[in-house]
Design a protein around this nucleic acid. Structure first.
Lengths: 173, 173
DNA sequence: AAAAAGTAGTTTCATTTGCAACTATATGCG
DNA sequence: CGCATATAGTTGCAAATGAAACTACTTTTT
């Protein structure tokens, strides 16, 4: 390892002023919160039902929209086609999902929950909802509505800002 | 207007289907938002400075707290020791960081930004802050404070709820 | 109707990540 | 002191993820 007690070089000294206070930085906070929530809820799905989050999302969507194709579910679940393909594959193998041919397009498959798939959904749903309820336990209804609004607005802005970072990246080459 | 979360939903509509409406499910929304924000900002760091998010976090923290060890930074940056080790390694190799022996504990290394490390921090910081500013562009000061409060409360709750999911997992075996 | 272009979904391959084991040092305790 | 336990940080390996190529089919163009 490095010099035991070298002189402190001038250029290694820091001015505190130019730093950014990470714990207050919104992108960091969002990532951290989402990570914490994701981890605990993912644990729930996987331990109890051997489901990943993508799989769970697909099951949840098919619960209310049976017969959708992978292509249609993808955007709703924010999953790209590779994740879709893999998740569906696992679900089919686990007997939770059934593929049926679509006559209009032989590349696509209409997806349906099997009995076992419905079962999983039935059993997870109350847990997922209890988790969500607890997360919002000490929020008032007005606060929940406000949070909802904030998230919608941030979401829209984030999409919009992809453009901003894109532009900067162009400049950077 | 569409029903919000469990609480509100229960009032406004009897949830006839057994499915769960994903686009309104808070864990999903948080993950999606964090993902969108992360992706765009990560693009920014990596394209311009070849920095990953963990690396950026470490640089940001060392900017205001030079001389910290990996162990101390980890919790602040929400990074486990493996991520820390790898990120530090890359930063040192890129000449952004210097390790110095800690006399009190020969296992640990005190970390300092080099000239080049400071440089990176100086150049990213305004971009990161502009990104954050834009994200919050049409939020009033009061709304920002409220958002801040919401995030704090959700964060605390999420930590608390790890216990809840933990318990369920135990039951599930 | 044949050629070209586009799309649904899969597979391959390279990279990233996460866990467990490991090294080296430090601390606690009989 | 000397042995057991704990901790800082690293490494190796296996699984997850992402980008790009690929297959099979469909739509558009000429």
């Amino acid at each position: 390892m490095i010099p035991v007690y070298g002189k402190v070089k001038a250029d290694l000294m820091t001015d505190v002023s130019d730093a950014l206070y990470l714990p207050r930085f919104l992108p960091y906070r969002l990532t951290k919160l989402a990570g914490a929530v994701s981890r605990s809820i993912a644990g729930l799905y996987s331990e109890m039902f051997d489901l990943t989050i993508p799989e769970w999302r697909i099951v949840a969507i098919l619960g209310s929209h049976p017969g959708m194709t992978a292509r249609d579910i993808g955007p709703l679940a924010s999953l790209d086609k590779v994740s879709m393909s893999r998740a569906i594959d696992r679900l089919v193998k686990a007997g939770r999902l059934e593929k049926r041919a679509v006559t209009a397009d032989r590349r696509a498959a209409a997806l349906y929950l099997t009995k076992s798939g419905h079962d999983v959904l039935h059993r997870i749903k109350p847990l997922a909802q209890e988790y969500e309820d607890r997360l919002l336990d000490d929020f008032t209804v007005e606060e929940i509505e406000q949070l909802d609004d904030f998230l919608n607005r941030l979401d829209a802005k984030a999409d919009e800002l992809t453009e901003f970072t894109g532009k900067i990246e162009e400049i950077a080459g």
